[in-house]
């Protein structure tokens, strides 16, 4: 039971990171190309989940993806369930942590030395090739930081997941939800301590792992 919640949490965090990385790169890149009012509007929309209470984000998602409306019903027809399903937990985590990856990507792109872009121009390669072979590798430290933040935020996601995916043991009950349930149940304190210990262990391991990955490109540079 306890391992199941841990596994579900890890799965959610991993999938949300994989989903958010390309999306975050695309939106971050789009934002650097935009100016004025458009840029402000899109930035506000993307950053909204950072300031909204997660429960409110979850509420909006529940409304959007409920089978009563067209997005939810279309996805249902395509056999992609969202509400009260692991997909929903991944979606909730991805939406809530999305601002973190966009912010990191933006940071990387805006600090990228324009002289490297000019040098790529001088190589005569297409913009697409310059983006994939020069820009992305040069901003990879920012992508790394963003991914770690998304993973951590998704691993600990509670409010939006609870509202959209529910708290179904073995299906959508992630580690934070399992801890909450254990605290609520009589004689659940022992189990709660066990789960809290697991959460701490995984979080510390993630920090150590990300530190090592972070150091590697710098050591060779």
């Amino acid at each position: 039971m306890d391992w199941q919640a841990t596994l579900i949490s890890l799965k959610i965090a991993l999938l949300a990171t994989v989903l958010n990385l390309p999306m975050g790169i695309a939106v971050g890149w789009l934002l650097t190309r935009m100016r004025g009012w458009w840029r402000h509007s899109l930035t506000a929309l993307v950053m909204l989940p950072l300031v909204l209470p997660p429960v409110v984000s979850g509420f909006f998602l529940l409304y959007l993806f409920s089978p009563a409306y067209w997005i939810g019903s279309t996805l249902d027809a395509l056999n992609i369930p969202v509400v009260f399903h692991l997909n929903g937990a991944v979606l909730a985590s991805a939406v809530v942590s999305f601002p973190l990856i966009v912010r990191s990507v933006l940071n990387g792109l805006e600090n990228l030395d324009v002289r490297y872009l000019e040098a790529a121009e001088a190589a005569g390669v297409s913009r697409r090739e310059a983006f994939f072979r020069i820009v992305l590798p040069l901003v990879s430290p920012s992508l790394m930081v963003g991914s770690v933040l998304v993973f951590a935020r998704s691993f600990g996601e509670f409010g939006a997941t609870m509202v959209l995916a529910g708290n179904i043991p073995g299906k959508t009950q992630s580690l934070p939800l399992a801890i909450y349930t254990a605290i609520q149940s009589p004689n659940g304190w022992q189990r709660a301590w066990l789960l809290v210990g697991l959460a701490c262990l995984i979080s510390v391991s993630a920090i150590i792992l990300s530190e090592r990955l972070w150091k590697r490109p710098h050591a060779s540079a």
Binding site: R115, A119, A120, A122, G124, I134, L138, P217, A221
Partner: peptide, 20 residues
């Protein structure tokens, strides 16, 4: 016509080699 579409070889004063 941007530089990438011109048949130009350019040696920059400040090298600009890609560090990766």
């Amino acid at each position: 016509t941007p530089l990438r579409r011109r048949p130009v070889g350019f040696c920059f004063q400040d090298n600009r080699l890609f560090p990766h």
